[in-house]
Every structure is written in structure tokens, then in C-alpha cells.
């Protein structure tokens, strides 16, 4: 922790970066911190409780500015950064990544190749919570699944915290706000909520890196992250790669190849 503070303070003091995005102690758990001078770097902390995906801020130009900035990134954040890079949303010369490896060493990742090399060592696995709920859902019949999700969706009040917390929901105008035509009914109601979440899932498949930020952000406790995670798990073997894991450029659903298997066309 001390190393992160020192390094952040030096980077800011020497003008290498104008901003270090990290974590500080919050009300109940750590929260995001924007360090803009070496003094505020003293507030930085980093431990296993630091789970906010700070990649969500990287595409907000009003916050990160024009100059080079650093971000403290646990593995889930690194995967989002990789995906943002694949989608041409980040530039290498603006970003400096700080992370702490499993042995507790502070690592500096300068290029996307560095990040890719680092991320490659970690396999994306279901956590206990995901395993528990997803295996329950897997055992359900179609009707039971629909019932389960409709009940969950009935609690949604469309605060869009899921969208706001997602590093990959960077569109300046979201599909739910398009009204010509009105694709999705914008008010909260069970079916209208389902429309929103299905649409969001469709927009995330092949892009979601299963960081869990959407589910974590949901104020009414809908395990919304599991929808996109499951879709990712279903998609990955078909397309031969996992979003956020180092791979070729392009997205599963927005690239097309002559030799695509197209098994869904019968």
C-alpha cells in the first residue's frame, strides 16, 4: 500500500501524470479517488476490498482530461481496459496502469502489450456467488428461469446504475433513450424492465468482461451481472475467445469472417 502511495505521489510530483485514479477509504468500503496532486496520494489505499471498476472513468474526457493519467487496476479492471482498447476507446500514450501482483509487488504496465501479457496469466473463473446462483439457474426449466428473472426485474426501477457503473457502457446516447422508434418503453414496469435488460445484454455480449460492476452497483440487489456473464460464457467457446482476455482486435458480434460457421442458420 505504501508503495502505491509513494509511486503515485512521485508520478504526480514529477508531472509524469496529472491524475492517479485509485481508491480511498469510504463509508463502509473503499471508494474511487481522483488524486490530482502528490499530497492527496496519501489517501490512497489498495487491498482486496477495492473492487470498483475504475475503467468506467477512463472514457469520461471531462474527468481524465487531455494529459496522461494513471489508474490503479485490479485484474477485473485490466480486462475492461483490454476490451476498451479493442474497441478503440483508449490510447496507449495517455494511460499508465498500476497493479499489484499476487505476490504483493507493485507492477507498472505501460503498453497494451504489457497489460495483455499480464492479464494472460489469470484465468477468468466464476466466484462462489456466481457459481451458486448460476448453477441454480442452470437447473431451472425455461419457464422457471423466466419466472425467476421476471421476479428480479420487477424490482428494477430503472436508475441505470448498471449502465453507469459499466466501463463498456460508454455510448453518449443509450438505446433506451432513443425514441424514434421507441425501442424500449422507458418507464419501470416488469416487462419494460426486462426489455431494457435484454437489450443491454445483447449489446454486451462479446464485450462484457464479467467484472461484476453492474451487479455490484444495483441498489435493489438484482444479480444483473450474471446475465451478461452467462452470455459471455455461452459465446466464448463459439467464437474462440473471452472478451477482456488478450485476443485479436474486434468483437464477436461486430466482426464478420468468410469462414464464420454460422451454425445458427439452418
Amino acid at each position: 500500500m505504501e508503495k502505491i502511495r509513494e509511486r503515485a505521489a512521485t508520478l504526480l510530483a514529477e508531472g509524469v501524470v496529472t491524475l492517479v485514479l485509485g481508491y480511498e477509504e469510504g463509508t463502509k468500503r473503499p471508494r474511487p479517488l481522483f488524486c490530482r496532486n502528490s499530497e492527496s496520494a496519501r489517501k490512497l489505499i489498495f487491498d482486496s476490498r477495492c473492487i470498483h471498476n475504475l475503467a468506467v472513468y477512463l472514457t469520461k474526457k471531462e474527468l481524465v482530461g487531455k494529459d496522461r493519467f494513471a489508474v490503479i487496476a485490479p485484474i477485473a479492471t485490466l480486462r475492461s481496459i483490454m476490451q476498451l482498447y479493442v474497441e478503440n476507446q483508449l490510447s496507449e500514450d495517455k494511460l499508465l496502469v498500476l497493479t499489484v501482483d499476487p505476490s504483493g509487488e507493485l507492477r507498472e504496465l505501460v503498453t497494451f502489450e504489457d497489460i495483455a501479457g499480464y492479464v494472460e496469466q489469470f484465468e477468468l473463473k466464476r466466484g462462489e456467488r456466481e457459481q451458486e446462483i448460476l448453477s441454480k439457474i442452470d437447473e431451472m426449466s425455461r419457464e422457471e428461469r423466466w419466472k425467476f428473472w421476471m421476479e428480479e426485474m420487477s424490482h428494477c426501477f430503472k436508475c441505470y446504475a448498471c449502465r453507469s457503473a459499466c466501463p463498456l457502457c460508454y455510448c453518449s446516447k443509450c438505446v433506451v433513450e432513443v425514441n424514434r422508434p421507441q425501442w424500449i418503453n422507458p418507464w419501470p414496469a416488469p416487462l419494460a424492465n426486462m426489455e431494457w435488460h435484454i437489450n443491454r445484454a445483447m449489446h454486451m455480449v462479446g464485450r462484457c468482461t464479467a467484472c461484476g460492476a453492474c451487479g455490484d452497483a444495483c441498489p435493489v440487489g438484482i444479480p444483473i451481472d450474471l446475465i451478461t456473464r452467462k452470455m459471455m460464457e455461452d459465446m466464448a467457446p463459439e467464437f474462440g475467445y473471452i472478451p477482456g482476455q488478450p485476443a485479436k482486435k474486434g468483437n464477436a458480434l461486430s466482426t464478420w469472417k468468410l469462414d464464420d460457421r454460422e451454425q445458427f442458420i439452418r
Partner: peptide, 25 residues
């Protein structure tokens, strides 16, 4: 507000926030 991500969670759980939209079904 730097860390605020611009969702509506605060407004929707608030007992006094009343801002609304009018929509067509």
C-alpha cells in the same frame, strides 16, 4: 462529484425526490 457515475439510484430511493418524465404507452 468526480466519482459520481450519474445514475439515478440516489433520486429513486429518496423519499422527497419528485422529478418525473411523461411518456406514451
Amino acid at each position: 462529484s468526480e466519482r459520481c457515475i450519474g445514475c439515478g439510484a440516489c433520486a429513486f430511493v429518496c423519499p422527497t425526490c419528485a422529478c418525473f418524465d411523461i411518456q406514451e404507452d
